[in-house]
Simulated assay, not measured.
Amino acid sequence: MAETCAQEQATTPAAGVPANVEVDNSYENDSAYGDELSSYSASLTSSVLDYRHENGRRYHKFRDGVYLLPNDEPENDRMDMLHELSLVLMHRKLYLAPIKNPQRVIDLATGTGIWAIDFADEHPQAEVIGCDLSPTQPSVVPPNVKFLVDDIESDWAYESNPFDFIHARSLAVSIRNYEKVIRESYRSVKPGGWVEFQDWDGYPTSEDGSHKGTGLQRFYDEVYGAFEGAGYEVRPGIKLEQWFKDAGFVNIHVEKFIIPYGIWPKDRYLKKVGAWCQTQAEALGFEGFAMAALTRFKNWTKEEVMVLASQARADGKRRDIHMYFDYYVVYGQRPENS
């Protein structure tokens, strides 16, 4: 996050202009400086907002191709549904780590920013930062929230201004070097501070084998195969504990949740969780999830992806398929004396 830090941390330059920085003398009239600055700023903004449009979906352009899911309105709606799914799953809790009076917090790959906004409302004393590849967050937010455009797989530079709490959620299929992100989190959290990652084991299962041979299983096998072939991590949940240990965290806690697909469970809590899981997947989630990975890496056509998604959606409505996902919440503390 080197670029982000340069924007976030104000510095006081030495007097005068460094000799190795060439001055642009094309504008000598001070009265035109405001217009020039406005024009230059607009060009910078457009480089971030100049999205890629492909197969009827919109994708980020900053670090083009790094993230394979869309960032358009249907996807933003789906991500907010995922937020509600997480709240239902964790009994309306935004996090499980035992943090106390956090003053400085960052939400990695914040998406629509909804977690950061909710956290800021709960902790008005905290400065909350949300960073993401896409500037799709709302402009009207609590005063203690700000959003930055950055790639969390780039080098960070937060060691001189570390955080009390670092949070990340659902990074599966989003990044390649997951271990590096956790190591950077360790270096960027204060001694005694906490880091929490919540993530999926992407491949679904069923206790009775009812998902085998279905359109749902084929969908996830094909799509995750494409992501894995391109180097993305699709099963981070089962690896988080070991990655936390390797990074140096202590007081590591692991909690495993079950996320059913659909309303087939008898238990009312699991039924509600399953309903939200199915709702977000059907909200153009299947197509959005699969389109870029299969068309860019497997040479599928848009029509072939739509057929695969349709088959998965149809089987998802069957009550005789008892499919579910494992979901992990892992948090750990940087040692006080580190």
Rank of each mutant, 00 (worst) to 15 (best):
T301G: 00
N101D: 14
R235I: 00
I166A: 04
N71S: 15
M79V: 02
P142M: 00
A97F: 08
I166H: 06
K302P: 01
M90C: 09
S46A: 14
G65W: 08
E196T: 12
L270D: 08
Q217R: 15
K245C: 09
R218M: 11
P18A: 15
D30W: 10
M79T: 09
G213L: 10
F244R: 04
D107F: 12
G111L: 00
V181G: 00
R183C: 09
Y33G: 05
G113I: 03
D107I: 08
S154C: 14
E233P: 08
E207L: 12
G213E: 10
D267T: 05
N177I: 13
I99W: 03
I99E: 00
D315R: 15
G332V: 04
S338I: 01
W276I: 01
S47E: 01
I175N: 01
H167E: 06
Q311K: 14
S174I: 13
L49Y: 08
Y186T: 08
F219L: 09
K190N: 03
L82F: 09
R169T: 09
N71G: 10
D132W: 07
E336S: 14
A275G: 15
D132K: 02
R176Q: 11
G262M: 12
W156G: 12
V23Y: 04
V88I: 15
L294I: 02
P204S: 11
G56P: 05
E127Q: 15
Q311E: 07
G274C: 11
G113S: 03
N161M: 01
L133A: 13
A157F: 03
A19M: 11
Y327G: 02
E36Q: 14
W276C: 12
A275K: 15
A172P: 03
A42Y: 11
S210K: 10
I182Q: 05
A290D: 07
W194E: 09
L284I: 07
D326M: 02
F244L: 03
A14P: 02
Q103F: 07
P143D: 00
D199P: 13
D50K: 04
R58C: 13
D150H: 04
D155T: 04
S188D: 08
K61Q: 13
I106C: 09
M79Y: 04
S86G: 05
P142S: 02
I152H: 04
M306Y: 04
L284Y: 12
E3G: 04
G231I: 03
S210A: 05
E54L: 10
I99M: 01
R268S: 15
N161I: 01
L68S: 11
Q311W: 02
L82A: 07
E255W: 11
H83P: 06
Y27D: 08
L85M: 14
F289Q: 07
N29M: 01
P204E: 01
V17D: 00
H60C: 06
T301F: 00
W243Y: 14
F227W: 10
A168H: 00
M1E: 13
P13C: 00
K190R: 12
T279H: 12
Y186E: 03
E36R: 14
R334Y: 03
F119P: 10
R58I: 08
T136C: 15
L69Y: 12
T301L: 03
M81F: 13
F227Y: 15
L68V: 06
V329D: 03
I99N: 01
K239A: 04
